[in-house]
Every structure is written in C-alpha cells, then in structure tokens.
Write a protein that binds this DNA or RNA. Structure first.
Lengths: 194, 194
DNA sequence: TAGGAAATATGATGATTATCATATTATGAT
DNA sequence: ATCATAATATGATAATCATCATATTTCCTA
C-alpha cells in the first residue's frame, strides 16, 4: 500500500462535507461536481474514484447533512433534561442564525422543495433523515407516548415552515419578528412557557 | 396591425400558464425555456418576443402561481363565512390532493427551498405572494386584529411545512395519516373543531 | 532511495441550455 | 388576391456540466 490506509477515506469525507454544505447552499442541481471538488481542495477528475455518480454523492450529502444537524443538537443538549433540550432545540431551530446560514442548517428547511424532484436514492436518504428528526423530537416531548409522533411531526413542520417562510422575507427585522413569534407559538403549543 | 390585438397577449398568457405549472413541477432551474414553450404549443425561438429573460418569466410565473392559488380559493370559499372559509382552506391545503399535485399547488409548499437561490425579481414576486397569502388567512381568523398576522404566518408555516413533509414520505398511507393529523392540529389551534 | 501502485490531475466528449440572428409563416387591411 | 408586417420557427453559438480516458504525481515499502 503506497498511501496511508486512511487517506482515501479522508478525501472522501472532505468531498462529502463540501457537498453537504454546497447542496444546502445552492441546491442539489445548482451545484456542480467540479465546484464541490474545488471546495474540497481537489480537481474534478478524481471524483469518480470516490462516488459512483453525482446522485450518489448528493444522497450521501443529504445523509451527512442530517447527521451533522443531529450531532450539533446532541452536543448542544448534552446533559439537559428533556424539556430543556426541547426548548433549546426550538430556540436554535427557529432562529435568525438558522435563517441566515442555510448551508449549515437543517435540510428540512433548506431542501424540502428540491427533494421531490431528486432521484430515488436521494429521496430515501432524505426520508430517513426526516424520520430520525421527528423521532428525536418525539423523545423529548411530554405526554403519553401514543400521540407524540403526530405532535412531533406537526412541530417539525411548523419549525421548518417558519424558517423557510422567514427566508422569503427580505427585510431582516421583519423576518426576525416572524421567527420570534413562531418560536413563542411553538413553545406554548408544546407546553414550554417563556 | 396584421394580427388581432389580443393575439400576442394570449400567447404570452399561454407561456405564462405553462411556466407556472412547470416551475412548480420541476423547479425554476429544472425546467428549460424550450420545454415551457413546447408545453405552450410553441417553439423556443419566439420566447424573447414575450419575455426579456428566463428570470423574468420565472418571476412572472411565480406571481401567476400565487394568483392561481388565490383565485382557486376565492372560488372555493365563495359565499362562505369566515370560519367556513378557514376550515375549507385548511382542508384543501393540508390534503392528499395538494400533496399529489405540486404543479397546481401552493408555491409556498412547492418552491420554498428554491426561492432563496433565485434572482431578486423572483424573490420579490415570491415575497409578495407569501404576504398576500398570510393577509388573506389573517382576514379569516377569529380574534382581535392585532395578533392575527402572527397567527396567520404561523398557520401558513405549519400548513406549508406539513405538505412539504408529506411529500418526503414515500408511503402514501403514512403520508395521508400525517396530513390528517396536521389538519386536525391546525384546526384545533385556530379554534375550529371537527 | 528507488520502484510502483494508489491517488489525483489534465483534458476531452457529448449533452443540455439560455440567448440571439435570421428565415418563414400567418393574417388583416387594401 | 396580394402585400406588409407581426408573430413564430429554424438554426447557431457559447457556456455549463456530468462523465470518462489518460497522464501525472504522491508517498509507502523494500
């Protein structure tokens, strides 16, 4: 073996991270293979040594994007109780920071309308990510287990919808007010006050 | 004048309608000028006699899509009281039919993630459409005028988010259950029961 | 330290697409 | 019926992009 055992894997990871960011920033069809490779510090030619096709990369990037979000929130809520985690999650999700940084944000708010138009592999990765997010949310919600999934889905829909809506508002102050209002409504709806 | 006064305007309308549908179905960047023109029964060459650029067409198509939705709901709720209109609106919006037909659906549920990546003109048209939708909703909501805008925005976010979410679920039955649940939650949240 | 394979780069290809230049067709007034 | 012209079509161009073929570089091992 002429290269270290981990070299190729590291390169693959770098491409994947670049893609996870670029796909959210520019959309799966708005970004090119060459651009992603350049972002990872490489040229376009080596791409197919790492991924079978652009679609395979996009599918992996969607999975990576959801995984990044999950890790970020896991870190953020470390050691918190369920209600604290929930509040922190809503605050971080329905926030001006999230609105301002699609490339690091939740794919649900950033890719929702692109997804139905993607290939099967990408849609499957997205569906897994969505379900994981809802399950995590449901685990934090108070109440009897039976009904929590529906409430979690409803809350996820409103959070993602609110962030997407806020991105349609050009005026920052107006968008920030919309987010603050949505945040308050969501929290009161799930029994978190103030 | 060798052609009837209305001929060109009619052709423009035909292109616009084709675009309004295609843009929702395939995304602003997923559809080509030639494809839209073919859909309107024309060839690509004449396009620039009707629109200055593809972006101008997309902006007009977004406006048209919002206008179509508004007209459709105006027709549907004709003669209804505010609470009835509201209930009919939620039922029609958060529905399997809406999920199944993005090309005729609300741009908010179909284009949200594409929009931030579009040019200024498109984003402006979208923002106007979104604000119109929220204002219409607010007009139907019960309560004191002051707080209705925030609630309307929150409801719009959840409705659009729920439809987008349902489109990520491949299994029809599961998606339909999600929609039914979201519908019930939204209606109970705005004081409509059953 | 040199050889050789693994990793990456360079360059090419064909497909697609927005836009524009020019040709053709359709139509209503004469 | 014919003509002038508005409306539309045909065809070209240049750019972009996914993919692939081939060349070059890198760096571990012997």
């Amino acid at each position: 073996m002429r290269y270290s055992d981990t070299r190729k894997e590291e390169t693959r990871k770098a491409i994947l991270r670049a893609a996870a960011s670029a796909v959210r920033a520019k959309g799966p069809d708005g970004v090119g293979v060459a651009e992603i490779m350049a972002e990872a510090g490489l040229t376009h030619g080596g791409f197919y040594a790492h991924f079978r096709s652009k679609e395979a990369l996009v599918a992996a990037a969607v999975e990576e994007a959801f995984a990044q979000s999950a890790r970020r929130f896991a870190r953020m809520t470390q050691g918190m109780s369920a209600p604290e985690s929930l509040a922190a999650f809503v605050d971080a999700y329905v926030s001006p920071e999230h609105r301002a940084h699609p490339s690091r944000g939740c794919p649900l708010a950033t890719l929702s309308s692109d997804l139905p138009r993607q290939g099967e592999a990408v849609r499957a990765a997205y569906e897994r990510g969505v379900k994981g997010l809802i399950a995590r949310l449901a685990g934090w919600l108070p109440g009897e287990a039976g009904d929590l999934h529906g409430l979690a889905a409803s809350v996820a829909a409103e959070m993602a919808g609110a962030v997407a809506l806020s991105r349609a508002i050009a005026d920052d102050d107006e968008a920030i007010r919309l987010l603050a209002d949505a945040r308050a409504r969501i929290k009161s709806r799930i029994g978190i006050f103030q």
